[in-house]
Structures are given as C-alpha cells and as structure tokens.
Design a protein around this nucleic acid. Structure first.
Lengths: 340, 340
DNA sequence: CACGTAAATCGTAGCGCTACGATTTCGGTC
DNA sequence: GACCGAAATCGTAGCGCTACGATTTACGTG
C-alpha cells in the first residue's frame, strides 16, 4: 500500500524540473504550453527531467495563474439514461482529446438541483458549460449570463436558448411517428409515456404526435407512467389501456424501453403485432432490431449531438461564432421495422 | 446573450466581499470554511455581502492555497453501461452531498487510456480516486502509490487491490447460476457472453460457471460475442449455438441484454423456455421482470456499491481505516423467475 | 567582426485564496 | 476599573503556476 505522506503531498514542482533541466521555471512552463517555442535541445532536457521526476503539472496553480481552466461542465438529467450517457461518452472523448476535463453533474430533472450544480461548476471557472434542454430556473439564467461562460444546450431544439443549441425537435419526432401510423390508416391511437415531469422532451413528442393525429381526425389516449419507464408498470398500464379502449389500433411509446414493456404485454395477451395493434418506440436502442417483431422507432442523433456539441463549444473558444451557426438542428430518422 | 467580458472574467473576489461586509478577507474565508467560528453578527454581514455581490468562491485559488481539492476522480470503463452509470449516479449524489465534485473518465476498457486518465486526474490533486476493477497498468500502479491518494477499486472483489475495495465476487455469480441450473438437472449448458476483452468481469463469471458445471460432470459451450452485447449478433450466435449443440438445455448469459437477445431468438425458433432450454442473465435490469417468460437473473448491488464506496472514501479522508474494513464484499442475490 | 534582428530564455509580479501566528475584543472577576 | 483567558478577528506569507516585458543568445550581413 502507498505510504501516506504529509497531507496534500504535492509532488514535484515545476521549479524542481527546471533545476534538474538547468533552465528557468518560465522555460519549463513555456515548453509545457507551447513546446515549439523552445529549442529542441532544451525541450529534450526538460522532457527528460519531467520523466525522471515524474512531474505532473498542478492544474490548480495553472488555472489560478491564467484564470482559465481546461474544464467543461456537463449537466444531464441522469447518466443512467442511455441517451444521455451515449452522448456524454462521445462528448467526453472529443473534449478530452482537445485537452479538456469534464465535470459531470446529474440534475435529476430538478431545476433547483441544476442551479446548485451550475453554481458549483462556475466555481471552477470552466471554459464552457453543456446543459440538457431549455428548462432552467431564473437564477440559473442570471448566473450564466453574468458569467460569460459559453453554454451549449443540447438534446433539444426549437427555443431561443441561452447561447448555443445542438439538438433536434421532439415535436417533429411525434409528428413523424403519427404520420407513419396515419399512412397505414390507423386513427385510434394511444401514447404510452414516462411521466412528463421526468421528461419534458417526451411531452414534446407527445404534443407533436397528438397534434398530428388529431389534425387528421384521429384520437389519442394518453397513458402516463408514474415515474421512469418501469417495465412492470408499463405492462399493467398497457393492459388497462387496451381493456378500456379496445378500439385502439396503434400505440406510440415515449421511448423504446416503454415499447418493450408494451410488446411483452401484447405477447402475454396474445395480441398480434402489428395486425391487431401497431407499436412504435423512440430511441432505436440496441435491442429494438431483434425484438419479436422488430420495433419501428426513431433514431435520435445521440452521438452526433456529442460530436457537434464538442465542436461547437471548442470553436466558440477560439473564434466568434455567429447567428445561424450557433444553433444546430440535427434532425432524426424514422426506422421502419415490422411492429408498425 | 451574455456580453463577453475580459478574458477569464473572474467575478467578485473574496476581498470585495470582505470590503462590503466590513471585515477582513480572512474572516470571510473563515466564515466560508467554518461558519460557527465567526460571530453571528459577522456571519450575517458576510452572508448578505455574498448574496448581494453574487460571490462564488474560486475553487482553484482555494485548492492551490490549501493544496487539497474537493475533487474525486472516478474511472469507469464506460458510462454507457447501465451497471456503471447507476453506481455512478449513487456515488455522485453521496459525494456531492459531502461537498465533493466528481471528475469522470471513461477508460473504454483500455489500460493505457486509464493510465492517461489517472495522470490527468492526479493533476487535480484529488481527494480520492475510484477505479473499476483490478486491471491496471504497471505505470498506473506506480503513479497511484507515489501519490498517496486514497483509492477505491469497485465492482470486483477477490484480489488484494491497491488500497480499498468495494464489490463482489463475479466468480461466485457464475457459481450461483450454475448451481441453480444443476439443481434442475440441467448439465448440458452454454455460456453466451460479451467479449471478455471488453469485460473481464464477464470472464470471471464464466469461470465460476464453468468450474461449477464441470465439477458436477456437466459441459459448457462458450459463445463469445465479438464486441459489446449487440442484440442482432446475439440472436445469430444463439441460433448457431443451438444448431451445433442441440443437446443444450440451459443457457447462461453474461448479462441481461444478452439474455434478452437469446430470449427473442428462442421465440423466433419456437423453443419453449424453460421447458426446452432454460435462460439466465445477470444484472436484474429493469425489464427482466416482465419479459416473456420473466428472466431468472442475478441482482448485483449497483447502488450499494456507490453508497459504500462513497462512505468508505469519505471515512478514509477523516480517519484511519484498517485491515478488514478496507475491503467490502457486498455479495449478490439470485433472482429466480420463470426462465430458469 | 561589429551590428541588427529574430528567436530563445529569463525574472518578476501577481492569480485568489488558506494557514497560522499575532492582535484585538469581549465578558466576567476581584 | 484593572486584569484575565477565551473567542473573534486580522495580517502576512505563501501555494505553484502563467503572462509579459526584459534580457540574452544566435545567426546572418555588410
């Protein structure tokens, strides 16, 4: 086991490296920040001193001195949701490759918590901030606008936003599904969803769906789960739904996990999919291609959001981005399989 | 939009708060660090100055001065995996409540990448570090042992470890499943798994399974997916497996996602579960209770790992933890449903 | 080979805060 | 009201680094 040294044991300092390399600390600092501005000879000396001493720069000291940090804060509702975690992973890779560290926080769908997290992240003097969606408290708005930190709101599109926006329209997703079902002549529909309080984006998809179906003279029964998509509850609610509304011929789900629950419930009840009732999801999760029957769903650009968010943020750090380029609608794709 | 101020616009400083509150900066600092050591009167003055100015402490300055930071680094293979992300969420909540920020990194199952991440996190002088599992490069070992940072290795148990350990035995998981299947008289088995290179823990579960089955005179056919659990490939490989080994009467899967793929493939082939072939998973993911038939699986202590890791780490920061208390085996629970 | 210019290197002054010893304030006592 | 100990407050000296102007070095030129 590591033997405990004195508290806060800051290892080797830049000065020690400088002494060993027989240069001034400034030169070491310069070498680390802009290696091509020191001569090849010194570079070699310095690097070997660094290696020999196992020097690690002290980020806090550097950050304090330069009053900026290679930190980017990212707030998602929950890393537990595979949509966000996949975006997060891509985002992390791209930002880290550019030399940034991610400070991640789970807002847990709570604006007050988000505000606290924003506060705590701003304490780091972050180079940028990534938030999920448009829902923020007044105070959060105030904090952000007085801090001058570049901000990207991701995973949504269609509102003005604080600064930069990378996402897609959830309303359009709902419309897309609705149009697909209507084209099959299905007008009696239901929308089974996680609770809107836990997911405003699901609510937007619902609105897009409902507006489109109703505009075509169809009906929509909304069934909301009490919390996050819990398979058991999904099954039960679907059962109740179909009993109360036997006329329903299509079920749109707020996401693929809900759709999976619906699928299994239909199996249990012996309802043929899509003959008796069509089922559609959202997310194009890995398993959807091989359910029985394969699930019709929507592919959101989860990785593309991460990639473009990283790029936009990094770009905004080096040059002025204006107008249109600050807002990206990445769109979605309907994946038609057999279930609808 | 926020108007850009001068670069690195550090907002209000502690000195400004002090001036407005008519006390010295030291008193403000003291108030922030140990509020009960300043008089009620001053406390009130200071707090109101803080509120009025919207003061946010500068973490970098504080960290530099005290040469410690309220940062804890966490490295997981990928946040995309729901096991890790759930642990992460719990860990985050607990550590944040204790005033710590998480610096998260995805190792992507790559020791070299992990080493880089460890290096980058050590630059922050973290109060602690959480790693996943026991597999680390030599250099990582060296870095950690010379840094004196408390380290918890989580999600595994049964090896000495670097410092502290919170997890459970994957070998035991495999054994548990095997014993359950053997008790039903099933001796011709298969193990369908994500690729071991992406998941040593799956390999350990396999070893536990195989050892137990073989010790009872049974057989195990191993089928490894090429990468992460991809449902389509799972279906295909399961098909091939059952064709090549029609005698197989039980399939253990490295996780529930794989099991889901197997389930659907059996449905497609019209094989009755569990009559013709039993299927068991690992993870007790949300959907497993309502598949058709419901899936027998193992419940790993995903949240408990987060909770206990947080507690152990925090405890180790305030007092000496010794011997036994540094290594926690949280165990697992077999969840018997209908599929096996 | 003195000179000029550009490239390389260096010295200094903080960045905003904390640690800690020094100083002041506050009640209570005699 | 002078005196005391404890509590509250303050002043100072950095933490390790970066920014930037000052200085030195290198190198080609007349």
């Amino acid at each position: 086991m590591a033997k405990r040294q004195r508290r806060g044991s800051q290892r080797v300092t830049m000065g020690e490296v400088a002494r060993l390399a027989d240069v001034s600390p400034s030169t070491v600092s310069l070498y680390l920040r802009r290696p091509d501005e020191v001569s090849a000879h010194r570079a070699e000396q310095i690097q070997s001193a660094i290696d020999r001493l196992g020097y690690l720069p002290n980020v806090m000291a550097g950050g304090l001195a330069s009053s900026r940090s290679r930190v980017i804060g990212v707030l998602v509702p929950t890393v537990t949701n595979s949509f966000f975690s996949e975006t997060l992973e891509t985002l992390e890779r791209h930002l880290r490759d550019a030399g940034y560290q991610l400070l991640i926080g789970n807002t847990e769908f709570d604006e007050a918590r988000e505000e606290e997290l924003v506060r705590s992240i701003l304490s780091w003097n972050p180079a940028g901030l990534v938030l999920t969606g448009f829902g923020h408290s007044r105070k959060t708005h105030a904090l952000l606008s007085q801090s001058a930190t570049p901000v990207v709101e991701m995973w949504d599109y269609g509102q003005p936003g604080l600064d930069m926006v990378v996402g897609f329209s959830h309303h359009a997703c709902g419309r897309l599904i609705a149009e697909h079902l209507l084209a099959q002549g299905r007008r009696r529909t239901a929308f089974v969803s996680t609770h809107f309080q836990r997911d405003v984006r699901a609510q937007n998809r619902y609105h897009g769906f409902r507006d489109t179906v109703e505009a075509a003279g169809g009906t929509v029964v909304l069934q909301q789960l009490s919390g996050r998509s819990h398979a058991e509850e999904t099954g039960r609610l679907t059962g109740e739904l179909l009993e109360a509304h036997p006329e329903i011929e299509a079920i749109a789900c707020s996401n693929d996990m809900v759709a999976l629950g619906v699928l299994f419930e239909c199996q249990r009840q012996g309802l043929a999919i899509p003959a008796r009732v069509a089922v559609a999801g959202f997310g194009n999760l890995d398993f959807t291609a091989s359910t029985v029957p394969p699930l019709t769903t929507i592919e959101p650009p989860r990785h593309e959001i991460g990639r473009r968010t990283a790029r936009l943020l990094l770009d905004s750090l080096t040059r002025r981005i204006d107008g249109d380029a600050r807002r990206l609608d990445l769109g979605v794709r309907l994946v038609v399989r057999e279930s609808a």
